[in-house]
Write a protein that binds this DNA or RNA. Sequence first.
RNA 1: GCCGAUGUAGCUCAACGGUAGAGCAACUGAUUUGUAAUCAGUAGGUUGGAGGUUCGAUUCCUCUCAUCGGCUCCA
Length: 645
Amino acid sequence: MADKVKVALPDGSKKEHAVGTSVEQILREFDPSLAKTALVASLNGRTVDLSEKVGEDSEVRFFSFDSEQGREAFWHSTSHVMAQAVRDLFPGVKLAIGPSIEEGFYYDFDTEDPFEPDDLERIEKRMREIIKQDFAFRREEVSKSEAEEIFRQGGESYKLEILSELEGDTAVLYRHDDFVDLCRGPHVPTTGVIKSFKLLSVAGAYWRGSERNPMLQRIYGVSFPKREELDQYLKRLEEMKRRDHRVLGKELELFSISDEVGPGLVLWHPKGAMIRKVIEDYWLEEHLKHDYQLIYTPHVARLHLWERSGHTGFYQENMFSTMKVEGEEYQLKPMNCPFHILIYKSKLRSYRDLPLKLAELGACYRYERSGVLLGLSRVRGFTMDDAHIFCKPEQLEEEVIKLLDFSLSMLRTLGFDDYQIFLSTRPEKSIGEEQNWDTAQEALRQALESQNLEFEVDKGGGAFYGPKIDLKIKDVMGRPQQCTTIQFDFNIPERFDLTFVDSDGNFHRPIMIHRALLGSLERFFGVLIEHFAGAFPLWLSPVQIRIMPITDEQNPYSAGVERRLKEEGFRVELDDRNEKINYKIREAEKEKIPYMFIVGKKEVQDKNLSVRRHKKGDLGRFDTDEVIDKLKEEVKKKAPEPVSF
RNA sequence: GCCGAUGUAGCUCAACGGUAGAGCAACUGAUUUGUAAUCAGUAGGUUGGAGGUUCGAUUCCUCUCAUCGGCUCCA
């Protein structure tokens, strides 16, 4: 056996090291400054501790906190420190799991008494002590039976359960101080590298996410190598709170959800309703341009329809209970598709009719469990911007391409040009011919590839009735938001025996695509509010302009301006209250009204306007016609940013 | 649905088991004001709801409804 190995370094160079040299030693030699920030490394693609020793020719990489691997190890290590702190302070708790997550980490504990928010401070204090002592994280490979012994003694039943499901004969333990955990690793070198952290919240969580299992207590936290990074993170949380659509929705009088109406049912107030109407108008205009036909359908239908569509079978738990009318059961609709299908079926369809595209802003009602409702994001009554496309198999790819293009252009106009795309394929439990699935999945993939769109494949993530493409937009805070969905359906055309007459004179089954571009108007509105922090672009603003006379001497002139602007199609208000101009401005700014026209003596005399823009301040005095032209242009362009004056 | 927290005036928040208070908003009056809060006065509450403990409950207990943070699912 050779006593030297070749190590390929990140800069492409190669170096010989003795077998058993630690990654850390290699790193120190390679780049002493990187050695200060590196947390973990990889050997031939396998992420490892810095203390790992090389045993064969390897390609080595180093990861600091700025990489995914580095962050994961960092957060995961913090969760171990937290687990020790909890174990020290609350003897008798059992440890479940404590992974890193997208932003931070959590650890699940089984404890008789749930943690209280005050406990977090105590735990933090103990964590600081553990960190200060700078314990090394030590990796240890033991036989399964050895590990079993350790956890049996500790009464760690969850660890034993995980252990029993591990493949192979060995288990990996990580120790620091007197704390031991079953863990794949890797970890950062010592507890001391965790310079700043914060425990954020306590929450209940089921063991392995299933409600049949015991409820555990989960503590969430986040940590960083530098104090400033934690501060920045906390600032971001503040910013998210400031943008919260539930808060802004109340402040700006956009919508409310009333106890008396019921949970998850939205009241659109005049200002929210105006924004919705502008979006709807734009939506309809675009759909007509894209060869869709507008339809309207009822909110309820005989239960029979839902039996035929299959919803009473596979969707029952999400539906409101039925109601009885004249001895007949009726069902509030959770979806629009059966109605659209009946319109398709209302006459004999020829291949010349295809693709047939029926679109509707359809109000749907779904039973959502009380614990999951959330502002506008998760409701029980919502409006889907729904459409169904009936087409021939060979039209599929082209239709999907058109859909993607349509969706992206509409979202761009509404202010979103950052997104992620997911292609979800056949799940285990599914219906339909395998060949149909393959063709359909291939069509979706081809469509995405031909448009040079990057996408991730969610294997087995499709609906049981067909594959789908989902599009998540990223809002201004970088949070992904479920939005467009394009789903094939092999089930429902079958159930309703949909046909068309092809050029060969025979009946064939059309393919049906369900699609929603915005998703639901309610959820989309919530995303929109947070994206713009309530300061909507001019074309969407419920009140576009407020005219503010300085004294009541200017009221008549201001009223004339108001009339003129209304005639020009602007949504405008006149603030002729007996208040100081500063006060009027303050209120208009707080209401995030895009334009304020201030009218004093000078403006009346010169028959012009002083223009103030929300957040920007005074823009100066301008000729009225010029201002109107500029603003019209801004509206017409649906400009996300104000035009320049 | 489950675990935990919360629920007081339109909003934001106070009030040791002893008849509930402030700021903002609203209303009235004065003030006629030049780019983010003029001054004064008035009114506003079955303390989410129902029960219980107590001489007495916003405060303690039980149930219930809703909201928030999560678990799961999705538009």
